[in-house]
Design a protein around this nucleic acid. Structure first.
Lengths: 208, 208
DNA sequence: CCAGAATGCGAGTGTTTGCTCACATTGACA
DNA sequence: TGTCAATGTGAGCAAACACTCGCATTCTGG
């Protein structure tokens, strides 16, 4: 249906030199995206910004799509890692605190390269890159569903799966929306309080 | 920062004939987008699909951007209209019913040209088209904040503005997410029940 | 019925840009 | 130190595609 192109690397970098090249190119891709926007992202521009020749770029990325795909993958992995790494610790806290911690984690994750995040979500077509997003989304979903199931007796929910779906979508959207449209709200403690209230009241947990 | 191009029509269609052309072209744009994706959207392809020459197309749309901009504008207006037109009626219902009605309206709005909706959200860069989106979002936001304020004494909220922000973002996200990633959920009454629960519990309204 | 405006046409043009390839340089390993 | 693989180079090619322009057709108002 949609034009689908290969985004797997053409060649594996074997020496340190070439690994550095790959990193430089990816960093340059991010810089060009932020500075010139998606329209201004040409392979020549990226190569120039990276201080590398187009040829070298094409040694490791089969096409422009692959460049963007790799960048998106890295970015969403970084964001997800920021949340998942702490989720284990959070699991041990009392529910009220756990909820707040998760929300604050989500906000913190959105503070990772925010300009890049904005460009990626606003401008970059997600053709053929949704698989990864869905995958990470599913991981989040399962983790939250797990947390809810583990404490099921403390909560007023019927189906942990549906509850997780609703909560993940809501918290993500509130954070994302605030980050893009009203960044000042993210510093407003009332927003965090209300987001916590949304979750705790839904879960039937006593508010502190 | 980003490349910004004019998207205002080059010429106003004055006769019925040309108004029909404009409509045909827009409809063709939607068809091409759905069938070939954003990458496959070329002005020549649109003209051909519309059974019109490229020249005619350029009489009314100064460039390809304008084509897409007009389509997006129409689509979001259609979706917003579906919600706003009913919102007045809803305002008179008892709160529990009003909440459910709004949620069902949101779902119904997402059933308007769903394939087009998917392509527009997944593939089309929103460069220079966010103003309209923010504007309509702000309208929704104000309407909901108004509803909340009007019934403030029945509700357990402190700031109707923040509450509206949270609720609009959440309901939109739950619906959108379900529509794109798990359409079968939209037919699951439990999802709607739980979404209602999320809102009513947050607002401190007794559940039925 | 006619003149001028509005609309429609589509082959062709100019530019942009993704990507290649023939060659140069550097590193690994014996 | 020599050899081959790995890596780097960038001028230039080829294709795609947005957009123009000179002309044909249709409509409108008098």
């Amino acid at each position: 249906m949609y034009r689908q192109v290969k985004t797997t690397p053409r060649k594996r970098p074997r020496q340190d030199r070439s690994r550095a090249t790959v990193d430089t190119v990816l960093a340059a891709t991010a810089r060009v995206l932020v500075k010139r926007g998606f329209d201004g992202l040409t392979t020549n521009a990226v190569a120039e910004a990276a201080g590398v020749s187009v040829g070298s770029l094409y040694q490791y990325f089969p096409n422009k799509e692959a460049l963007v795909a790799a960048l998106i993958e890295k970015h969403v992995e970084d964001m997800n890692a920021a949340i998942l790494s702490e989720l284990v610790r959070v699991a041990k806290l009392p529910i009220g605190e756990a909820v707040r911690a998760v929300i604050e984690l989500t906000i913190k994750a959105h503070a990772i390269e925010p300009e890049l995040h904005r460009v990626l979500t606003e401008q970059v077509p997600r053709v053929g890159r949704l698989a990864k997003l869905r995958e990470l989304d599913a991981i989040c979903h399962r983790m939250v569903a797990g947390l809810l199931t583990a404490r099921r007796d403390e909560l007023a929910i019927t189906d942990p799966d549906i509850a997780a779906f609703i909560l993940v979508a809501s918290i993500e959207a509130i954070t994302h929306h605030a980050a893009l449209f009203a960044p000042e709200r993210l510093r407003d403690p009332r927003l965090i309080d209300e987001a916590c209230a949304l979750v705790t009241r839904y879960l039937g947990v006593a508010e502190n």
